[in-house]
Every structure is written in structure tokens, then in C-alpha cells.
């Protein structure tokens, strides 16, 4: 291996891991609509994000900025403290802070505004049939604020009457659903919890990754990660944003973008969709 390419690769890798993903727009103007993104979808496709941002900008006739951070928590904090106007968040942080946030839209995935949490194991592991089989093994969570990638397995372990803190020999956060799939695929973790939407999208985009994992268990359906806005966002801007998103399925460009997202449309949200997550929180002893 050439030393220069090695160092360059290393530098790029370090940059990515230290900065947690570079913001799409370098400088954000005062009048920009600031939208936070989290790895509830495959948020590492920069070219796609740029096209989506440009589309939104054109439709709303105002600057739009995407903001990415390394964890759900950072995006949530930014949103709560007014650093962001909106964000595509997981249902769990939304439910936790639902008093201070308002729903904008819920994506429609395969005709339903719902998704599941998948329990995956390595493809070679033929023995594991359900979560208890993984007791004492190494487990990968997505993010401590992820519903499918953390809350669901936590609640399930409690359901089995075990303490999640000591159930696994070792567990770690991979900080995105995609990483969970990779960690399980390469054998870093024996099992992982992952968003069904992301796993299925990966099945199309990176079959070599998903083919090395095996879905063991599917959870109940939960409300799809919604796009939310801070409570005090200007009503006009909110309405405009909502309209543009919901109208995406009606324009050719919008449909093409939705296709790349593997989504059907953005729909008007329903508070009750997220009741399942609230129930999980209680089950996990978190509320």
C-alpha cells in the first residue's frame, strides 16, 4: 500500500469520525430553514441530500440548510434549544419531548406510516431464534435515543424479566442503523437491533452487507420516525414546509427523491401513531 493513500484515507476517516459528518451547507444564513437530520434513514448519501435540499429550497423559495450530528441526542438538543427549526427524528425522542415539539409529517413506507425493529444476527449464526438466545453475547445498539435500535430490545429484555444492563456480556452503540448492520455482518457484534426501513433499504443498496445478516425477530409496528418542528417555529414557515413535503409525491422530481428514499410520500401525522412507543417507554421503566 502506498503510504500517501494510506494517510489520506486515514485523514478522511478521522475527519469523518471526529466531526460526525460534515454539514451539507457550510454557512447557514439567518433566514434559512434549518433542518436536522439523523441516521433514521441513510443520511450518508451527500449527493442525494444536496439534490433534496435544492428541491426544498426551490419549492419554498427560501434557503434550506441540512444539519447533521453524530448522535440523535445532539440533534434533539439543538432542536429543543432553538438551534434547529425542524428535524427528522426518531419516534422515541419525539415522544420524550412531545410537549416541546410538534409533528410536521410522517413518512409513508410501503403504504403505512409504520416500521418495525428487527433483531438481526450474523448470517452464520443458525442457532439464535429470539432475543434470549443472545444472553451473554455481544450486542450492537444503534443509538441511545433510537426506538428500534435501543428502546425496543430494552423493553423486550425487561419483558423476559432480565436486567438489560447485565443481559449482554457486552453491548455498544454503533451510532447508526447502518453501522449496526455492518457490525453484525463482520462479526463485531453477535446481534443487533435495527430499523426495518433502513435494513430493507440496505438490502437494495448494499446486499453484500445485509446478506451476511439474518433477521431473527420482528417487533410490533411503531410510528415511523417523523419530521418534527420546535414548538415555537413560525406557523407560516411550518405550514409552508409541511405543504412542500406533502406535495413531493405530486411532482416528478419529488417522486424521484422519494423513490431514492424508498418512501411513498410524506403524510399528515397522527399523534396516536406514537402511543406504542410511549407504552414501550413505560415497559422499559423510562417514564
Amino acid at each position: 500500500m502506498n503510504r500517501r493513500t494510506l494517510l489520506r484515507g486515514l485523514a478522511a476517516g478521522l475527519g469523518a469520525s471526529l466531526l460526525g459528518g460534515a454539514p451539507v451547507a457550510a454557512a447557514i444564513g439567518h433566514d434559512s430553514l434549518r433542518i436536522g437530520l439523523t441516521p433514521v434513514f441513510l443520511d450518508d448519501q451527500l449527493a442525494f441530500l444536496e439534490r433534496w435540499r435544492a428541491y426544498l429550497e426551490r419549492q419554498m423559495e427560501r434557503p434550506v440548510a441540512f444539519v447533521q450530528r453524530s448522535s440523535y441526542r445532539e440533534i434533539t438538543e439543538l432542536l429543543l434549544t432553538g438551534g434547529l427549526d425542524c428535524a427528522w427524528l426518531c419516534g422515541y425522542p419525539y415522544v420524550r419531548h412531545r410537549e416541546r415539539l410538534q409533528l410536521v409529517v410522517t413518512p409513508l413506507y410501503r403504504g403505512r406510516p409504520q416500521y418495525q425493529s428487527l433483531l438481526i444476527v450474523g448470517e452464520r449464526d443458525r442457532r439464535t431464534r429470539e432475543l434470549p438466545d443472545l444472553e451473554g453475547r455481544v450486542f450492537a445498539y444503534a443509538d441511545p435515543l433510537s426506538n428500534s435500535g435501543w428502546l425496543v430490545p430494552q423493553a423486550q429484555i425487561r419483558l423476559y424479566g432480565k436486567d438489560p444492563a447485565f443481559f449482554f456480556r457486552r453491548s455498544f452503540f454503533a451510532w447508526s442503523h447502518r453501522n449496526v448492520v455492518e457490525a453484525v455482518a463482520v462479526g463485531l457484534a453477535d446481534g443487533g437491533a435495527v430499523d426495518s426501513y433502513v435494513w430493507e433499504a440496505l438490502e437494495v443498496l448494499h446486499p453484500e452487507l445485509t446478506s451476511r445478516t439474518r433477521v431473527v425477530q420482528r417487533s410490533d409496528a411503531f410510528g415511523f420516525p417523523p419530521i418534527v418542528a420546535r414548538q415555537d417555529l413560525d406557523a407560516l414557515a411550518l405550514r409552508e414546509f409541511k405543504c412542500v413535503l406533502m406535495a413531493m409525491s405530486e411532482t416528478d422530481t419529488g417522486r424521484a427523491l422519494l423513490n431514492e428514499l424508498f418512501l411513498d410520500a410524506f403524510t399528515s401525522p397522527d399523534q396516536d401513531l406514537y402511543e406504542g412507543i410511549r407504552a414501550l417507554m413505560q415497559q422499559a421503566g423510562l417514564s
Partner: peptide
């Protein structure tokens, strides 16, 4: 205790292939 971050760090100089036979490095 960030396992994933450590994994990504040590994988940066390597070709991140999924094949098990890449034991050269």
C-alpha cells in the same frame, strides 16, 4: 469505551471489505 469508533479507526487504513479471507493486513 467506544467499540464502534475504535473499529472505524482501525478500519480506516484497510480496505473495508466484508470478506473473511482478507487477513493480509
Amino acid at each position: 469505551d467506544e467499540v464502534w469508533q475504535a473499529y472505524e479507526t482501525i478500519m480506516t487504513p484497510l480496505e473495508r471489505s466484508l470478506a473473511d479471507d482478507g487477513h493480509e493486513r
